[in-house]
């Protein structure tokens, strides 16, 4: 099964391009602080310097080396998305399994809360939380978790409902196993594939959301180097220095495209459907 899937991935050039670009992005994000001699907030030169041997991509509005900021610009977004989505996956798996297994009142309450969350578009959800909770990285992570947990609950619950009536679950119940043990030993192994695909899908969507929020001024705060933030800082100078907008845009887009192409390719090879779950949020 795995061998066959691997072959199918290798045969798809689009997926291979996705994996290559994704790997490059991850390597850059991991190594960024050691790739250039400047600090990301260091005022290394004069503002708006053109590209030179000192500053390969020139400097930004404040005179910071743009290449340094560009290489660093994905780290915070990726980390926030990673933490937020991880919490969403764990919590979503728990509540999704609980809803499917217990049914009745617990199911009803969980699903109505999910419906409530789904009714509020993600950027609006963030907007309503910021005045009270403030704007910081921990809040942002919890917000991302809240945004994505509902989708995970729904998919996990739907799959768990098809697992529940199967023989091995009934056998476990008859053996007198506890609910927790049934969840961990009978359900979890069977939803793990799905959780991996969910993780990848939500991850790309979360990266888009975090950078959109930063662009709107509701996400990561300056002076952190962040692609969404860099676009919003550069947009005022788009007539004279369009590169300030173009570079971070390209960096962000290539990352998300690569991530989605990889997810699609791997999900296809595993025989899962990625399209249904993909949303812009």
């Amino acid at each position: 099964m795995l061998k066959k899937s691997g072959k199918r991935i290798l045969r798809s050039p689009v997926t291979m391009i996705g994996i290559a670009v994704l790997t490059a992005h991850m390597a850059i994000a991991a190594l960024a602080p050691w790739l250039t001699p400047y600090g990301s907030s260091e005022l290394a030169g004069m503002p708006f310097e053109p590209p030179s041997r000192e500053f390969w991509l020139g400097t930004d509005i404040l005179g910071r080396d743009y290449l340094t900021r560009l290489l660093m610009g994905g780290r915070i977004t990726i980390s926030v998305a990673l933490c937020g989505v991880f919490i969403a996956i764990v919590a979503g798996a728990f509540f999704g399994l609980a809803a499917a297994w217990h049914g009745g009142m617990i199911d009803e309450v969980i699903m109505r809360l999910v419906d409530t969350k789904v009714a509020i578009p993600s950027i609006l959800l963030v907007g309503v939380l910021i005045p009270g909770f403030g704007q910081s990285v921990p809040v942002l992570i919890l917000v991302i978790a809240l945004v994505y947990v509902s989708g995970v609950i729904r998919t996990v619950r739907a799959l768990a409902l098809t697992i529940a009536p199967q023989g091995f679950v009934t056998a476990a119940v008859l053996r007198g196993e506890s609910n927790l043990s049934i969840m961990c030993r009978e359900f979890l192994p069977n939803v793990l594939d799905l959780l991996c695909v969910e993780f990848a899908i939500r991850m790309s969507s979360a990266i888009l959301l975090v950078s959109s929020l930063s662009f709107l001024g509701l996400g990561i705060s300056p002076p952190t180097p962040d692609w969404g933030l860099m676009v919003s800082e550069g947009v005022g100078y788009i007539h004279t220095d369009p590169w300030l907008v173009i570079y971070p845009s390209i960096a962000l887009s290539t990352l998300v495209v690569a991530l989605n192409l990889t997810t699609e390719g791997v999900a296809n090879a595993l025989g899962l459907d990625a399209a249904r779950g993909m949303t812009k949020g």
Partner: peptide
């Protein structure tokens, strides 16, 4: 189908603030 499906993935992988600014740059500036 491959062309359409791949462009669709690219299409929704690009955030609105990137495509919007790209359109501004091309068709307004």
């Amino acid at each position: 189908d491959t062309i359409v499906s791949t462009s669709a993935i690219v299409g929704y992988s690009i955030p609105e603030f990137v495509s919007g600014n790209a359109l501004i740059l091309i068709f307004a500036i």
